[in-house]
């Protein structure tokens, strides 16, 4: 019991002890306690196979995807303070985000982050394939991952419309016109011409899947609002749920894959 440092003094206060219920993680007991007792860290197992922490094996692409998703959530919420999803304001608000706001790079972080997330998700999947990690018992989690990949692309795609510039609406016009060509469900797709009784057209541009996506016959203000809601609320919620399932199953299927 030599001289006590200020750190030791802080560690002994009631406030510190009420937050951290264990000593510093420098022995086995406390290392277990810090991971098991923290709501964020308890996603992890307390101990794990060495290959599961090696960057050479995991590339950390799954972790980075999740990190970028969180970064996008934070920057996205910040952007929502200034952005109004109407044809009249949307474009000007995007300019205001650059010109009238201190540190006007929030939109840049959000946009580049979106691109980065697509890349990291692809590379994560690439790694999982190359190590054969989709094999039993992880088949189901691979499927969840594929759905998450699709949702990542949809998130990015719905966000692409929001700046409401030429780049945005024409990219979405091209993309959403593919929905028009859905067999049987789109008015420009195969099968729609057959679903016709006399003069009554069953699948028309007013009731097909593209109309549901755009809330109109072309990319207009209702589409902007619809994409905004999909982008900011609906898809992130679904992604959040699926990420929870994905992480849970990584643990339940035996952690990060390793040779059997």
């Amino acid at each position: 019991m030599s001289k006590k440092g200020i750190a030791d003094y802080v560690r002994e206060t009631q406030v510190w002890k009420s937050i951290f219920r264990h000593g510093p993680p420098n022995n086995a007991r406390n290392r277990a306690a810090v991971v098991a007792g923290n709501v964020f860290l308890h996603l992890h197992p307390i101990k794990l196979k060495k290959s599961g922490v090696q960057l050479g094996y995991t590339w950390c692409m799954g972790g980075l995807s999740f990190f970028v998703f969180l970064a996008l959530t934070v920057t996205g919420v910040l952007l929502m303070f200034y952005y109004r999803p109407t044809a009249e304001y949307a474009f000007n608000d995007i300019i205001a985000l650059r010109e009238h706001v201190p540190l006007g790079i929030m939109r840049e972080i959000h946009r580049w982050g979106a691109h980065l997330m697509v890349i990291t998700v692809w590379l994560h999947m690439f790694r999982v394939f190359m190590t054969g990690s989709y094999k039993p018992p992880r088949e189901f989690n691979w499927g969840v991952g594929v759905i998450l990949l699709v949702l990542t692309l949809l998130l990015s795609f719905t966000g692409y419309l929001l700046p409401w510039d030429q780049l945005a609406i024409w990219a979405i016009a091209v993309g959403s016109n593919m929905a028009k060509a859905t067999p049987f469900l789109g008015h420009g797709g195969p099968g729609a011409a057959l679903a016709q009784i006399g003069d009554f057209v069953m699948v028309s541009d007013k009731n097909d899947v593209r109309f549901q996506l755009l809330a109109g016959r072309f990319v207009g203000e209702p589409a902007l609002l619809r994409f905004y809601i999909l982008h900011c609320v609906f898809i992130p919620l679904v992604v959040g749920v699926l990420i929870a399932i994905h992480f849970w199953r990584v643990r339940k299927d035996g952690g990060i894959s390793a040779p059997l």
Binding site: N207, F211, Q212, G216, R217, F218, P222
Partner: peptide, 9 residues
């Protein structure tokens, strides 16, 4: 609900 009755195109 996702198909409005009126649209203002």
């Amino acid at each position: 609900f996702s198909y409005p009755n009126v649209n203002f195109e």
